[in-house]
């Protein structure tokens, strides 16, 4: 944050750019809505998410006061989706936090010190990255067992190599810049150099990358839950709802359709926002 404070004009420019980008605003709005759903879930939900009503199962949208209908246990689908947003956000943020903290530390160490330490760490990262992501997550979940924390860990570990590689690359280029050499000659401690000087310089790409990865983590949670390896029943998570909906695809397609829609919209929101963020922070990149 240090860098932005020093340059208020840049902040202004950034905000202006973001606001001009309609798609990014739309993404931000979507993220905002999901966050509101998650935080105020108890106020927004019309029913208790886990209360069953075996007399009112698989109701269609709008029937009997159920906004989006009910699932196979007669639980209110809308309320479950509202509560499910919490899981998606927690996993999304948690997994990226785990992945980025470990990845950033490893990347900083590898990039700054170089030499054999760099070789070992990066070889290890290469090896992790060579696993297809979902397979790594599936295998880890089988080891760890289902549950929220474990999903965060498994998805988080999958995120580590990406962060480590990116940070290492950034550190290498920042290191070459003059001012570090100057600080070095003044005898500043290594840890200080890393955290005060190098890290803030890498912040921009980290933020963009992290935003995109939150989207990826939300999909991963849904995929794991869909395979029965994610969040424990009866906790409502979008992946769980979709998985249950899959068994009633023909008689009650709304379950799978709505839960999937919410995954899609939140991921879309994050991707749009991430795109806008990148464009605003670095006018050169466009992809």
């Amino acid at each position: 944050m240090e860098t932005t404070e020093k340059t208020p004009s840049l902040v202004k420019m950034f905000l202006k750019k973001m606001l001009q980008n309609k798609l990014a605003c739309f993404g931000l709005l979507m993220i905002f809505l999901i966050v509101v759903l998650a935080i105020f879930a108890p106020l927004i939900a019309t029913h208790q998410p886990n209360v069953m009503d075996t007399g009112a199962t698989l109701l269609g949208p709008g029937q009997d006061g159920h906004l989006l209908g009910t699932d196979n246990y007669g639980r209110d689908l809308f309320s479950r989706i509202v509560y499910g947003s919490r899981i998606s956000l927690i996993v999304g943020l948690g997994a990226v936090a785990v992945g980025s903290v470990i990845g950033i530390l490893l990347g900083l160490v590898a990039g700054y010190f170089g030499g054999w330490l760099d070789s070992i760490i990066m070889r290890f990262m290469d090896a992790l990255a060579a696993f297809p992501f979902i397979l790594l997550a599936i295998t880890l979940m089988t080891v760890l067992g289902t549950g929220l924390i474990n999903v965060i860990i498994a998805v988080g570990i999958g995120n580590v190599p990406g962060f480590a590689r990116m940070i290492r690359g950034q550190v290498l280029s920042v290191k070459e810049e003059l001012f570090i050499e100057v600080t070095n000659s003044l005898g500043a401690k290594q840890a200080r150099i890393i955290f005060i000087h190098i890290l803030p310089n890498c912040l921009t790409p980290i933020i963009v990358y992290a935003t995109m990865n939150v989207a990826g983590a939300i999909i991963s949670e849904a995929a794991l839950s869909f395979l029965g390896l994610g969040i424990q029943a009866p906790t409502a998570s979008w992946g769980n709802i979709l998985k249950e909906g899959k068994d009633y695809l023909i008689v009650a397609p709304h379950i799978a359709i709505f839960s999937g829609m919410f995954i899609l919209l939140s991921v879309l929101g994050l991707n749009l926002f991430g795109d806008g963020l990148r464009d605003a922070l670095d006018p050169k990149t466009r992809a």
Binding site: L23, A215, I219, A222, A223, F226, L242, K246, L249, A256, I257, G260, I263, L264, V267, L268, N271, L272
Partner: peptide
Amino acid sequence: LVGVSVPVFWLGIM
């Protein structure tokens, strides 16, 4: 934009 955000398994089911 929608395409990059769609969950594969959901799309498959749909």
